[in-house]
């Protein structure tokens, strides 16, 4: 098999994942795109391992390690996304602008954390009003 086939497929998958990471708005879709990028790297590792016939099979061992680390990453990432959703009522990554610096905003975002935490359970139980409220708040502060 020509080596360019798996290499080009890995490159294209990586770029598709790159587009997804940059363009998606939902944090879980961003995590899916990260998975695509990790899989592109795995394909490269396997292809070059089979090509080089490494006696230690470092490529396949690293692929297994990458898969395990991807599983750990997706667990931690989803826990973070769920915690953010519980506190803010949204999982859109471009609504989370509390640490962004804006011109003419002297009051830091530390003041905004108290009301956001108080409205957390409301965002967890009643979805639509709290969600629109949180997004309006985020847009008002933006």
């Amino acid at each position: 098999m020509h080596l360019a086939y798996p290499a080009v497929l890995a490159v294209l998958l990586f770029c598709v994942g790159l587009y997804g990471v940059l363009a998606r708005r939902n944090a879980i879709l961003v995590l899916m795109s990260v998975e695509l990028m990790l899989n592109a790297v795995n394909l490269n590792l396997v292809a070059f391992d089979v090509w080089l016939r490494d006696s230690l099979h470092a490529g396949q061992a690293l692929t297994l390690f990458t898969i395990a680390i991807a599983a750990a990453e997706i667990g931690i990432g989803l826990a973070i996304v769920l915690a953010v959703y519980r506190n803010r009522g949204t999982s859109a990554v471009d609504d989370l602008r509390d640490t962004a610096e804006r011109p003419g905003d002297d009051t830091g975002s530390g003041d905004g954390n108290g009301p956001d935490d108080a409205s957390g359970p409301g965002g967890a139980t009643a979805d639509e009003p709290a969600r629109t409220d949180a997004s309006q708040k985020a847009e008002a502060t933006a």
Partner: peptide, 22 residues
Amino acid sequence: DADSGNRPVAVAVALAAAAALV
């Protein structure tokens, strides 16, 4: 609202990366 506003930039970056890497 599945895609954010920087979609054209993302398309440009991904196409440039794909072209260079391929």
